[in-house]
Simulated assay, not measured.
Amino acid sequence: MDLHRHGAHKFPQAGLLASSGGRNWQGVAAELRAHPAGDLPAIVPAQMEITLATRSIPGAHVSRKGDGIRQRTAVEAGTIWLCPVGVGEDDINISAPLAEVLHIYLPAERFSALASLYGDARIRADAVRYLADVQDPLIRQIGLSILGELTRESSAGRMMVEAAALALTARVAQAYGHDRPEADDPFCGDRDCPERIRRAIDFIHDNLHRDLGVTELAAIACLSPFHFARLFKRVTGKTPCTYVSGARLERARRLLSERRMSLFEVALTSGFSSQAAFGTAFKRVVGCTPGAYRHRAP
């Protein structure tokens, strides 16, 4: 399913400021849009939509009706709207232009995977409540982290977003389902679990030049993405995103010290999308530019 089709259909007049299209994110999509005032077309979503207002617009309101429920919400920074799978919206109005709104889309399969992991059939994408004016600091924090990667690509950013999407799915299902899951949090106790993570780690180091994602690494470890992300941190002490980012920067340091490659070649070999992205990430962690590091290296 192309998650971006939903935004194109629901927001035909909205400006697209940033999109995850082309980023190869798995199991999540995001768009930053500027909305004009006016009515939106009716729609029945096939994926979970989470909307986050990133700016306060004094006097602006969003009115909408879905699942027989009519809502009118002031647009304030941090306000969240939830629109679950299968809930038809047939009356949506934006009272004033909105300069910047984040839309995150999660496929129904994300919720199915969570239900399978926890053995709880009540966890479904269509079981989330249709809500407006949600004040949830955790969802807000996750949304802003996805927004940061959407507008400023970083090393291992795809992994960070996919891991954030797992946490976002779990939070929405846990806090806003019609029936809140009560199952205990299971954890793999098999003796071969550390070995599964070792396989993923070996794959990471063999493929640092590639775009890596949590879904792909979970498949290497023969685990679900939810289970893999939790188990990886339990075994290594780091999230997959943090581990990959550190491994890429460590490879970059070694290549810079060897002085056999140009800065551009070091960036690509270390898995960065561009020399500019490499320079920004390297300086943020190391405290100097790659060129300066190479000059000072023995």
Rank of each mutant, 00 (worst) to 15 (best):
G88H: 11
Q26H: 13
G287P: 08
A229C: 09
F264K: 15
P36T: 08
F228H: 01
A277G: 00
R230P: 10
E49D: 10
L166G: 12
Q275L: 02
Q174M: 12
G189R: 15
V44W: 09
A37V: 12
P137H: 02
E153H: 13
R284L: 14
A229R: 05
T54H: 07
R122W: 07
T169L: 06
T73I: 13
W81N: 12
P290N: 03
G21E: 14
L98S: 03
D192S: 10
C288P: 01
F232K: 03
A8L: 14
M159F: 10
L223V: 01
R5E: 14
L249N: 02
D202F: 15
R55S: 09
C222Y: 12
L256F: 03
I50N: 03
P84I: 02
E100F: 01
V244I: 15
A218F: 10
R72V: 12
R55I: 04
A167G: 15
V214C: 11
H295T: 14
A14P: 05
F272H: 12
N93P: 09
I142W: 05
G157Q: 02
Q47Y: 06
D90S: 10
G15C: 01
A30W: 00
A77H: 00
E49I: 09
A229I: 03
I139N: 01
P97T: 09
L263S: 05
V62A: 06
L102E: 08
I92R: 15
L117D: 14
E162S: 05
F228K: 00
L255I: 08
G287I: 07
D211M: 09
R253M: 11
F264G: 09
R171N: 11
H61N: 06
V101P: 03
V244F: 12
T79Q: 13
R284K: 15
N24R: 14
L256S: 04
T236R: 07
I57L: 14
A132F: 01
Q141N: 09
D206C: 10
S56P: 02
L52W: 06
R248P: 01
A221D: 09
L98M: 11
V28H: 04
P290Q: 02
G66L: 01
P298S: 06
R199P: 00
E195V: 10
E162N: 02
E149R: 04
D179P: 03
L106F: 04
L208R: 03
F226K: 11
Y176W: 09
